[in-house]
Design a binder for these strands. Sequence first.
DNA 1: CCCGTATGAGACATTCCTGTCTCACGTGCG
DNA 2: CGCACGTGAGACAGGAATGTCTCATACGGG
Lengths: 183, 183
Amino acid sequence: MSVDRDQVLRSAAALLTRKGSATMDEVAKAAGVSRATLHRHFAGRDALVRALEDLGLRECLAALDDARLDEGTAHDALRRLVGEIQPAAGLLAFLVTENALFEGESRHEGWARIDDRMTALFRRGQRDGEFRIDLTAVWLTEALYGLISAGAWAVLDGRVAANDFRHMIAELLIGGARRREEP
Amino acid sequence: MSVDRDQVLRSAAALLTRKGSATMDEVAKAAGVSRATLHRHFAGRDALVRALEDLGLRECLAALDDARLDEGTAHDALRRLVGEIQPAAGLLAFLVTENALFEGESRHEGWARIDDRMTALFRRGQRDGEFRIDLTAVWLTEALYGLISAGAWAVLDGRVAANDFRHMIAELLIGGARRREEP
DNA sequence: CCCGTATGAGACATTCCTGTCTCACGTGCG
DNA sequence: CGCACGTGAGACAGGAATGTCTCATACGGG
């Protein structure tokens, strides 16, 4: 009977990513609830986006924790991260795209911490000689966001199987598209 | 005196990518023109998005032509493509993100042709043994879109230098982040 | 069983956006 | 100079979206 708040947010993210001008009515329909109920849970569009931020932030932090980024090789940590973050990929795609992460001129504070942890992973990989250094850690972080978003959309559109999400993203980011003699 | 139509469209794309719910008034302000003038050039929001589609389509097709995708190695063709498409990266980021490319259920016809040409490049690279085959050509195409968008945003935010755009994207896509002994 | 709780449907006033119009101003050209 | 053209600023009505409200209904616990 009770509405699944997180599920509503996920539907909203999926819709808003593809149609940023969607109205509250459309969001409600997409989530399968009435506009009245949507308003009971989220005071307005701003509150809805805020809630999306919060949920995305929490899920990303949880994924970062579960991925144990400082254990093992940076390669393996990155693979774990992509796998752990997959459930939040849709939310992430929305948040990365939308200005939601920016307040004023600088990035959302909580988001900056996520950025930092990811960048730190790439830096560790570079220090340990696992990652090349001509591609900056900051760029690798941005690229990871971009690939996760692209992966989320590709899965939604049926262009990539959900089961391949982790492999496609992690292997492309780590090893690139070049064919190699030795694995 | 006369308004630069393409410049208005580029400003609109940059704004709409980050704030999909922006109003015509905000678009006009961002482009540095009055709302009246914006309306004189684009009948309404739909017409504006249509014009964005057209411009993006034209620039991407031009980039594809100039990149001569079927000449030389697939690696080099990809590098040329990324370089040629950089001026259109902002537009592309908007079009990839927004539902603009979808009409009904299937992708915009003109866009499907661009997709095909890019995918064909990756397939050629796979046939010639340049690209690995465990990452599908369709995914590599999607990933290229994602990386171009991420690159456009990173440049806009000053996180990556404009001059590094081509290298960061092409090298990451081709070679990945892994450090190698032999180049 | 009955009551509390949460939802869906719809009405409503208000606010905001849109699309169009008019008028004044500045620029370029003949 | 005088004219044509394009623009900025603002007013305006119409419409769409928002936010709030009421009422009926369905479910679930006590």
